[in-house]
C-alpha cells in the first residue's frame, strides 16, 4: 500500500501527457489553404430535359409533318430564325439586343429569345397545330450551340415538349 501511494505521488508530480495541438492546427490550415486554391468551383448548373428518338435502322414515319424551325447564326452574334416557310426573325440575346441594328432582307423584326417563343406560338396557332404536335429544330452545321439551346428553351417556355433535333450534313 505504501509502495502504491509513493508511485501515485510520483506520477502526479510528473508531467501529464499532453496533446500538442499547435503543429496539428498548422497542418490543417495548410491543407485548408491548399484545397481552397486547388479546388475548381463550378456554379450550380441547370438542365433542360430532352428526349432523343430511338435509333432505328429504318426511319420511322411521323404521323404529322413537324413544324420546321431553321436556325442560322449570324456574324454579328444574332441568330436568324425561320419558322416554317412563313416568318423570319433576327433573334438576339438581351445583352446584345440593339434596336438600331438594321434588319436586312426579308427579315421581319429584331427580337429576343423570349419573344421568339411567343412568335412560334402564334405560327402554331395560325397553322391549326397544337403544342403536342412535333417541332423540328433545323440548325446549320455552323449554328452556335448557344442559339440552339436558347431556342429549345423558348419552346419550353410555351410548353412545347415534342422537339426533334435535325441531323445536318
Amino acid at each position: 500500500m505504501k509502495l502504491y501511494r509513493s508511485l501515485f505521488a510520483k506520477y502526479r508530480s510528473s508531467r501529464l501527457m499532453q496533446l500538442r495541438m499547435v503543429p496539428m492546427i498548422d497542418v490543417v490550415f495548410l491543407l485548408l489553404v491548399f484545397f481552397l486554391l486547388s479546388a475548381n468551383f463550378r456554379s450550380q448548373e441547370g438542365f433542360l430535359p430532352a428526349e432523343l428518338p430511338q435509333y432505328l435502322e429504318q426511319a420511322q414515319r411521323l404521323e404529322m409533318e413537324p413544324l420546321l424551325i431553321y436556325l442560322a447564326s449570324q456574324p454579328d452574334g444574332s441568330c436568324r430564325v425561320q419558322i416554317g416557310s412563313e416568318r423570319v426573325f433576327d433573334v438576339s440575346s438581351p445583352t446584345t439586343f440593339n434596336q438600331d441594328d438594321p434588319a436586312g432582307g426579308s427579315v421581319d423584326t429584331l427580337i429576343d429569345f423570349q419573344q421568339l417563343g411567343r412568335e412560334i406560338q402564334t405560327v402554331i396557332a395560325s397553322q391549326g397545330r397544337t403544342i403536342s404536335d412535333p417541332v423540328k429544330l433545323v440548325p446549320t452545321s455552323r449554328t452556335k450551340w448557344d442559339h440552339v439551346v436558347k431556342t429549345y428553351n423558348a419552346l419550353w417556355q410555351i410548353n412545347l415538349r415534342n422537339v426533334i433535333f435535325a441531323m445536318v450534313d
Binding site: E45, A50, P53, Y55, S141, M167
Partner: peptide, 24 residues
C-alpha cells in the same frame, strides 16, 4: 457549332440513349 455537338448526339442515339439533359 451544332455540327460538332451533333456528333455527340449521334453517338447517344446509337447507344440507344433517350434520356438526355442539356446543361444550361
Amino acid at each position: 457549332t451544332y455540327g460538332n455537338v451533333q456528333k455527340a448526339l449521334l453517338a447517344l442515339a446509337r447507344s440507344k440513349i433517350t434520356r438526355v439533359q442539356l446543361a444550361a
